[in-house]
Design a protein around this nucleic acid. Structure first.
Lengths: 341, 341
DNA sequence: TTGATTAACTAAATCGTTTTAGTAAGTTTA
DNA sequence: TAAACTTACTAAAACGATTTAGTTAATCAA
């Protein structure tokens, strides 16, 4: 195992100084008045041995790693992983690498991850924050580390963010059900004070009230999502309790659980019950019935996130104002929200 | 913006040498005969300012980054992203971070990524290799960088890998259809010489032949997967051409496309057609009909991958033999493979 | 009492870059 | 023809850690 050649090795081999080699390799040959023949000599040699600088050393010296962190609730979630892919491509073109990680929406884990990546001197953070990490975000900002929040944000923190208009999306989805002559429209959501969720609830409640309808809400505590009792609760809410004619789900994984419950309980119910869910999934257009979904603009979200981040990175001007983008989601109407009664 | 304190800053503050601080922080205080009071003094102070060592500097000095790379075809694919999450957790406990990236099954991109991460001195690679990167893998091994291949491997390369028994899984799936009195069983796969795919085909063909049935195969070129003409081809194959009574899909995304085609063409066909697919998906048990799938043991795969990697990392012994794990997949039987005729 | 040990520290090299501040020649300029 | 520039390079500091090889003072053995 021959160790990888360093600048020093190259300099020695060519009988020039390390400085010269470094200048040439960084394209500063002309500017630093290195003669054309020497430039050629260096480049020819480094090409021939396929020299690659050690990024760790570069990072230590320059303080830049060209690494960005994308921290979300769960990277195996379709919504997040799709956006991750989109951002990865854009970042890649600009010479940045994006690292993905999952915080499970837990503060403890978020803090550990921020700590861990700060130690590694990453250049910027794109974060779907868990509820209680305002201090950590603030501290990053204080240290002039670029941060862009995503999907949700802190209302009393002046930080760049990219989100969708959840209230509007939710309102449209609810109105769509109302327009289709549903009236006992339930809303199943997770218990959360994070604004992406509270805004979705608000959109629903307001739409119901302004149509003179009674809001019917079931809130599942986050930590019980995958518990068996959640299924029972959902069943009770939809089937036994309120005589719902339709349900609007605030998030994808609740939809999955609920559809399963409904299927297990009463195969035919699905044909009658109106269903709209937040967040689209590739399999929703294959399902029977195909499922109406609020679709977030993944491409635009990814692009907006990365552009915001790149702007922050390129503006050494400390005084750059935070950019706040609010995109619109669209409703993809499929069969599940058509009233068959 | 006060810069983060370095060992030097701490040493100066405490009027001791950098060496002493470093020893204490690395838990070598006792061993290096640092007095208990000094140890306490250092620890108290570093705790009070919440000192965190600069990992970049540590990495440069030690040559270790504690970073592993998990490179797959597409990280937004359920199969890969689930395994990523499982590995992330295990790695995390051992002090490693896992970086995820997608190579799109393209050699060019794989090479770039390997290059890029090698420059960054990552400690190890877990790779679902694209077809033509044997040389790059070999070169990593030569440089004593731990590599574990995953999902597929190179038969003439003696490298650790973790895979499932694709032939066996495929054979069982085919036999299951045969046992359910299907006989015109089609196999839709992608055109590929990679062994995860050829083995799936082999399992199917052998099972068909030994049942005295004629193999009926449709191969889609990888680059055409998302093209419209692929839908046409699938439609022709299933519906117009061979009078199939069932189909076995070698991969999840083909299933999605096909189910869509079938749905568009003839709603009722789905009720009659037998369907089995490779790779499970959470929504398959919600679909109507629920879909029978070959389920790879995600948890075990993730664990096995990470354990193999950790073994390689911990054995400085150059002579460690590559570990080759072959896990069994299971068939999850649901409604789509029950013969209703 | 003196040479060897041990305890308790530290100076300086090192990892592989980048970059500042040179220097030694050659070329202009007045 | 000496002062002032240019050209074409290079020495060495710096980034922030780890680690080897010391040093000094105290303790011990004989």
């Amino acid at each position: 195992m021959k160790k990888r050649p360093s600048l020093k090795d190259i300099a020695k081999k060519l009988n020039v100084s390390v400085t010269t080699v470094s200048f040439v390799l960084n394209g500063k040959g002309k500017e630093k008045k290195i003669s054309d023949e020497l430039i050629k000599k260096v480049i020819d040699y480094t090409d021939s041995i396929n020299y690659r600088p050690n990024k760790v050393a570069q990072s230590l010296r320059t303080g830049k790693t060209n690494i960005l962190v994308f921290m979300v609730e769960d990277i195996s979630n379709y919504f997040f992983s799709k956006i991750a892919r989109i951002m990865e491509d854009i970042a890649y073109d600009k010479g940045y690498k994006v690292l993905f990680c999952s915080n499970e929406n837990e503060d403890e884990r978020s803090k550990e991850l921020i700590q861990l990546f700060s130690e590694r001197q990453v250049d910027g953070f794109i974060i779907s924050p868990s509820p209680g990490i305002q201090n950590e975000i603030e501290s990053l900002i204080e240290n002039k580390i670029p941060v862009v929040l995503f999907d949700r944000y802190f209302e009393d923190l002046d930080v760049s963010h990219v989100i969708i208009d959840n209230e509007d999306a939710s309102s449209k989805a609810t109105k769509h059900l109302i327009d289709n002559d549903f009236s006992r429209i339930g809303f199943i959501t997770i218990e959360s004070s994070q604004n992406q969720m509270t805004n979705r609830e608000k959109g629903y409640v307001d739409a119901m009230k302004s149509a003179g309808l009674e809001p019917l809400i079931l809130k599942i505590p986050f930590e019980k999502i995958h518990k068996e009792e959640t299924k029972l609760e959902i069943r009770k809410f939809i089937i036994e309790g309120q005589e719902l004619d339709s349900v609007f789900f605030s998030t994808n994984y609740l939809t999955r659980t609920a559809l399963e419950v409904i299927k297990e309980t009463d195969q035919t119910l699905l044909e009658k019950l109106g269903v709209v869910t937040f967040d689209d999934n590739e399999l929703f257009r294959i399902n029977t019935p195909t499922i109406t979904a609020v679709s977030q603009p993944l491409q635009e979200l990814g692009e907006s996130l990365m552009n915001t981040m790149l702007n922050l990175l390129n503006s050494k001007a400390e005084n750059l104002k935070p950019t706040k983008s609010v995109l619109k989601a669209s409703l993809i109407v499929r069969n599940s929200s058509i009233n068959k009664n």
